[in-house]
Amino acid sequence: MASDPPSRPPLPFAEARGVSKVFGRQRALHQVDLKLHPGRVTALLGPNGSGKTTLLSLFSTLSRPTSGTMHFGELPPERAKEARGAIGLLSHHAMAYGDLSALENVTFYARLYEVKEPQAQAEALLREFGLEDAMHRAAGTFSRGMLQRLGLARALVSAPSLVLLDEPFTGLDQRSCQRVVEKVRALREQGAMVLLVSHDLGLVADLADEAVLLTRGRVRHQLSGWESGEALRAAYAEHAEGAAG
């Protein structure tokens, strides 16, 4: 883990209040409320096209809600972009430059976030994600799983207090999945807010403190306190199918 994070105050909370998002005639989100707390992992569940990535994008500040407001700590909604330094995002893409090596990629972002000793921090994170042997290779030559791990290192290089992970286990082998699970647990221990989108209910059950079920852009159910992966799977099936029916 990057042991020497930049001196940026952590966000006390992040919250979507009645947010809707419309793309043309398509309503992606409708009146969604969701509050994220430090030291908690919140999973976003739902079928494809239910609005999970759109909600993640609103929490990243890279998209603005059509109505409703996004709150990041005490910042007024119109100044939400000031929270960007405290947000780490892993999206469907690794967000890495193919012509640069893994180390150059992560070091570049570390410099943008004004991380102290950017190269050392980048190296530490790449090692943590098992990329020590590939850190000098061009990212363009990486496999899907390696790119995913590089994307995670990039997203976490600034030691963000709000971590947004969109399907972080995609393309990862079992060992890499385990590394990510351990990392997410470590982030929770350090007091980060983690918003996790995943279709792997087994891993979600293992990692998340609560789960929010989205269907057709609406929050259908909030789940917590499940006893096992099977229990979460059953609850998910009941509510997702209920909404579909």
């Binding site: 960007r84 967000m95 943008l112």
Partner: peptide
């Protein structure tokens, strides 16, 4: 490529 512009825009730069 790789949606790098989003990472650039997300940074506090």
């Amino acid at each position: 490529e790789g949606d790098c512009i989003r990472a650039l825009l997300l940074s506090p730069v």
